[in-house]
Amino acid sequence: MPIVAAHVAKVERAVDRTRATHAGQPFAEVHQALAEALRDEGAQRVVPQVVEELARQISGAATGP
């Protein structure tokens, strides 16, 4: 399970980073930024539908307080 936990941590870092920089932006921009962040983290092996849903959630997120 340590391998799975390490992969999940990488995905979480990529999502957190993308959310911090791209929340509320258009889906295409968020999707590209998330894909790049996942690659940077070495976590590019994520089911495409999961990446799309995460990007959709980040894109729809409100920015700021």
Rank of each mutant, 00 (worst) to 15 (best):
G60I: 11
P26N: 13
H7P: 06
A28M: 02
V51M: 04
A62K: 06
Q44N: 13
M1V: 11
G60T: 05
E12D: 12
A23S: 14
T18E: 11
A9C: 05
G24K: 08
A23T: 08
P26M: 04
A20D: 09
V15C: 01
E29M: 04
Q57V: 08
L38I: 09
P26Q: 00
L54A: 15
P65I: 02
E53M: 07
E29I: 02
A62M: 15
E36N: 11
P48V: 13
G64N: 00
L34T: 01
I58N: 07
Q32C: 05
V51C: 06
A33E: 09
A5M: 08
T21A: 09
D16Q: 08
A20G: 14
G42F: 05
T18C: 13
G60A: 07
V8Y: 07
Q32S: 07
R39D: 14
H31M: 03
P2D: 08
P48R: 14
P48F: 02
A6T: 12
A35V: 09
P65H: 12
V50F: 05
R19Y: 04
E36A: 07
L38C: 04
V8E: 04
E52I: 12
E36M: 15
Q57Y: 15
G64K: 09
P26R: 11
Q57P: 00
A20C: 10
I58L: 04
A61D: 13
A55P: 04
L54T: 03
Q57F: 04
E36T: 13
R19A: 10
Q25K: 15
A5H: 12
R17C: 11
A14C: 07
R19C: 03
A20T: 11
G24T: 09
V4Q: 09
H22N: 10
V30N: 02
A33L: 10
A37Y: 01
A33T: 09
Q32Y: 00
E36I: 14
P26V: 05
V11D: 01
P65A: 11
F27A: 03
E52V: 07
V47E: 12
I3D: 05
